[in-house]
């Protein structure tokens, strides 16, 4: 069983945290990662900064811009993650836009991920058909889970199709929005979560977008295997830097029942 499967079979109320690599300082990537694991995060998503992050709101956009100014690139990220499996045990997923991966070379990228012990990838603008027709074999033989997004507008048929081709988990985007739009969870969203759950999917789900505190995390956990916190955590980093103690407090604050 791989790390993602293990996690989802062992735990519920999974707390997954997104942060941008190379932010706020270029060499903070591993510091933040370790602090997240120590602080109680169950899964991390490391964002690979991109010049044109079109599914992201202002907070993550700004962190990407800062990280690029700090000189971040995929090459440097791989360098920083060189020994990551010596001291981090939780599953790691890389998240980023397709162009930098395409430019790096998809095969080379997957091989490198496998070598470093990366468990999955979230590439929002890699379309489902393209993945299935060109890359699924490559990902699966390397043991890298490709994680798809679904949204309130995604039809049941399409969710089922995505489920059939998914490994790891399905990323349930909580509302029609870019990252960071902060709202209370509304009834229409609950209806959507219930619709997803009624489909009896074989892949576990995590809810993300707009999850940022104890209350939204708790609500999300009632409707999925757990939730993903992004902008709220990136905001913490931008205000306090890669401070291990604050990071721990943040995670504990979100997870406390």
């Amino acid at each position: 069983m791989n790390r993602l499967q293990q996690l989802f079979s062992d735990k519920k109320d999974i707390c997954s945290v997104y942060y941008t690599a190379g932010f706020p300082q270029g060499n903070d990537t591993v510091t933040v990662l370790k602090a997240l694991e120590d602080g109680g995060a169950d899964l991390v998503e490391i964002g690979m900064p991109f010049s044109d992050p079109l599914a992201d709101g202002p907070t993550i956009q700004a962190s990407s811009e800062q990280a690029l100014d700090n000189g971040m690139s995929i090459k440097i990220l791989f360098e920083q993650l060189k020994d990551v499996r010596k001291n981090v045990q939780i599953p790691i997923v890389l998240m980023g836009y397709f162009n930098p991966v395409f430019k790096f070379g998809v095969e080379k990228f997957i091989a490198k991920c496998q070598y470093l012990g990366i468990d999955g990838l979230i590439i929002p603008d890699l379309p489902f058909d393209e993945y299935r027709d060109k890359y699924q074999g490559l990902f699966e033989s390397a043991g890298i889970a490709n994680i798809f997004l679904i949204t309130p507008q995604t039809s049941n048929e399409r969710i089922q199709l995505i489920d059939e081709h998914s490994k790891g988990f399905i990323y349930v985007v909580s509302s029609a929005s870019v990252t960071g739009a902060k709202k209370d969870v509304e009834q229409s969203q609950i209806d959507y979560f219930n619709r997803v759950n009624s489909l009896g999917l074989s892949t576990p789900t995590l809810i993300g977008f707009g999850i940022g505190d104890r209350s939204t995390f708790k609500t999300a956990c009632e409707h999925a295997s757990g939730a993903i916190i992004g902008s709220a955590f990136v905001k913490l980093l931008s205000e306090n830097g890669a401070d291990a103690e604050r990071i721990k407090q943040f995670i504990q604050g979100v997870k406390t029942k």
Binding site: F50, S51, K75, F98, N99, P100, F102, K103, D125
Partner: peptide, 21 residues
């Protein structure tokens, strides 16, 4: 060179790291 911009696979101006310039 070849890459993705605004949802399309085409030619674009980019850095060696795939950032759009």
């Amino acid at each position: 060179d070849k890459g993705l911009i605004h949802g399309s696979l085409t030619f674009l101006m980019q850095s060696n790291d795939g950032q759009i310039t």
